[in-house]
């Protein structure tokens, strides 16, 4: 035992630095947070603000040169019928995809959370994780194969002698088209397919948090299984559905690749942003278009937060 109450060790540079950091804990936090804050604050937020700032500039219609003066003219352009159609179309598509994902995803999440045990639990988990992490482009590509005129879906309809039915469906305006791969229905299917894991995981997480005793209590109080589902499980799963919808909604709003590869020539917000900043060289309008999903998502997140959806993320 050393006689002193304090231990004196050979003090290397690191040991001295450690002492300093102990005496000034604020300094340690500061040093830890500095690199990520600089990276995200300067590179990311800086870029974002630079972009937003440009939405308040305008472009000279004749020369195509950007005029660096504050104006709301560019935002006014968003409300021109051709542009406003794009916004409405995108929002409707995002809503449809969200509802579709909830309808198809809920049974999967419900089964995985409440019935799957042991090996099946792992299978269900990976069954959702694998598509989530599979290559986005490969997933889109697989639907190009499926929806192609000579592809498997048409072949299936022909083999089952239902070709007429498909043609009748494709004859419907707005959702139909020449073939499935150039119709809004095709775009919808691909969106649904690509984003559905993002809906399932939060629902499953929120359902798994419902204690067994609560379901037993409901049964004990005389509720039939359907009533338990309606009055106990569904309200408790709602935050999960909303959390999932944040992803499906946001991802659909901002995507420009899927409608470019599968779909009609009618454009979505992402495509408009891409086109305006690229070939058209109209950065202000592209920036203004980019603000639309940000605003929509801000409102959506605000509502979702009030519903307590963040706990299920």
């Amino acid at each position: 035992m050393s006689d002193s109450a304090l231990i004196n060790r050979r003090g290397g540079a690191l040991a001295q630095l450690s002492d300093t950091l102990w005496r000034r804990p604020g300094l340690l936090i500061f040093l830890l947070i500095l690199p990520p804050a600089l990276w995200l604050g300067i590179i990311y937020l800086g870029s974002l603000f630079a972009l937003l700032a440009q939405s308040f500039f305008s472009i000279d219609e004749f020369t195509g040169i950007i005029q660096y003066e504050f104006t709301l003219k560019t935002y006014a352009e968003l409300f021109r019928p051709s542009n406003f159609d794009i916004i409405i179309r995108t929002v409707v598509m995002a809503a449809a995809v969200t509802i579709g994902a909830a309808v198809i995803g809920f049974p999967v999440a419900y089964y995985a959370a409440r019935y799957a045990r042991g090996k099946w639990k792992a299978i269900f988990y990976l069954g959702v994780m694998m598509p989530l992490w599979s290559s986005y482009l490969v997933k889109v590509y697989s639907w190009k194969l499926i929806l192609a005129k000579e592809g498997i879906l048409n072949w299936l309809f022909e083999t089952l002698h239902l070709g007429g039915l498909l043609n009748a469906y494709l004859a419907i305006p707005v959702i139909g088209g020449n073939s499935l791969s150039v119709s809004a229905t095709g775009t919808f299917l691909v969106f649904l397919y690509v984003w559905i894991p993002f809906m399932i995981l939060p629902i499953q997480a929120s359902l798994e948090r419902v204690p067994h005793t609560m379901i037993e209590a409901s049964g004990d109080l005389g509720a039939r299984p359907a009533q338990t589902f309606r009055h106990v499980l569904l309200p408790l799963a709602l935050p999960g559905v909303i959390a999932g919808s944040i992803f499906t909604f946001s991802l659909t709003l901002g995507d420009y690749i899927i409608p470019q590869i599968v779909g009609s020539s009618r454009r979505f917000i992402g495509q408009a942003v891409y086109a305006y900043q690229g070939t058209a060289g109209n950065i202000p309008l592209a920036a203004a278009f980019a603000v639309v999903p940000i605003l929509l998502m801000a409102v959506y997140l605000w509502v979702a937060k009030r519903q307590g959806a963040f706990d299920a993320l």
Partner: peptide
């Protein structure tokens, strides 16, 4: 990752 990728992309590109 919360904002659509196109916004991150176009923001970086214009920066």
């Amino acid at each position: 990752i919360a904002l659509p990728g196109i916004i991150t992309g176009i923001a970086l590109r214009s920066a």
